[in-house]
Structures are given as C-alpha cells and as structure tokens.
C-alpha cells in the first residue's frame, strides 16, 4: 500500500479586521474636517503680497471680490470668478455700491503695478464704494 503524501498543514486564515480600518478612516475624516478650509468664495488663484499688519478675519463680511491677474499678454479683471471688461465693471461696481455696507476685496499679485489699481480705484470711487480691503498673506 502506497502511503498517502502528507499535505502541508496551512495555518487557518484570520478573518479580515474591520476595526483598524474604520479607525483610520475616522482619523482621516477628522483631519480633513479640521485642517481644511471650505472653498466658500469662488476666486481665481494667485500669489498675494505679504503684510505684517493684515489679519485673517474670523468671519469675513459679505463682500464683492475683484481680482486682477497680469501676465505677458496683459491684465485681466475678474469679478468673483468671472472675467469682465472695464465697462462691465463700472456697472457691477454701481450695483454693489447700492448696498451701503458693501465692502470690496481687491486681490492682486505682489508685482502688480500701481497703474492697474489706479484705473480700477477711479471707477470704485466714482461708484461710491468706501470700504476697501487689499487681500494679502500674513507675513
């Protein structure tokens, strides 16, 4: 009688552990909920000037956002995240000024020349908006 080949005994498989995975997912969830800032206001991304006295507002008031982007092809103006021309901007500024509490946040890169702000500020003053804020990064 031929002896039967002995089968190697394999250790029994452990059941899949769900608890560590759930722990990890919870930790990730808490991390993203605490360190992230929700994109509440749509605005084009750009590098900003550094300021020593500017402060991040705890709760920003409702306000309009004007961004000026400048590259080799020229400058572009954005009202919130929509590109506008200078004549359209005039109308938008007048509409914004109807609200007496309106604040305007002006965003531009550190290299942006004063002449760009000058032509925009002329329209802002004509529209009658008094509460103006430059967007910066804290130094």
């Amino acid at each position: 009688m031929v002896p039967m080949p002995r089968r190697k005994s394999r250790p029994p498989e452990e059941p899949f552990q769900m608890a560590p995975m759930i722990d990890m997912v919870f930790l990730l969830l808490v991390f993203f909920m605490t360190v992230s800032t929700l994109a509440r206001e749509a605005r084009p991304e750009l590098d900003l000037a550094l300021s020593r006295t500017a402060r991040v507002p705890e709760e920003a008031p409702p306000r309009d956002i004007l961004t000026v982007l400048r590259d080799d092809t020229g400058s572009r103006i954005y009202w919130r995240n929509r590109q506008v021309e200078l004549d359209q901007l005039e109308t938008l500024l007048r509409e914004s000024a109807r609200n007496p509490d309106s604040q305007l946040l002006l965003r531009g890169g550190p290299e942006l020349p004063w002449s760009e702000w000058q032509r925009i500020l002329a329209l802002v003053r004509e529209a009658g908006i008094r509460d103006l804020v430059f967007a910066t990064f804290e130094e």
């Binding site: 360190v35 800032t37 991040v56």
Partner: peptide, 14 residues
Amino acid sequence: SSLEKSEADLPFPA
C-alpha cells in the same frame, strides 16, 4: 476642501 493659505485683510483708504 483646500489646504491653501488663508487670505488676510489689509484695509486702506478709499
């Protein structure tokens, strides 16, 4: 969410 730096306000005269 985004992990961008928060923007700070610098008021200036109108």
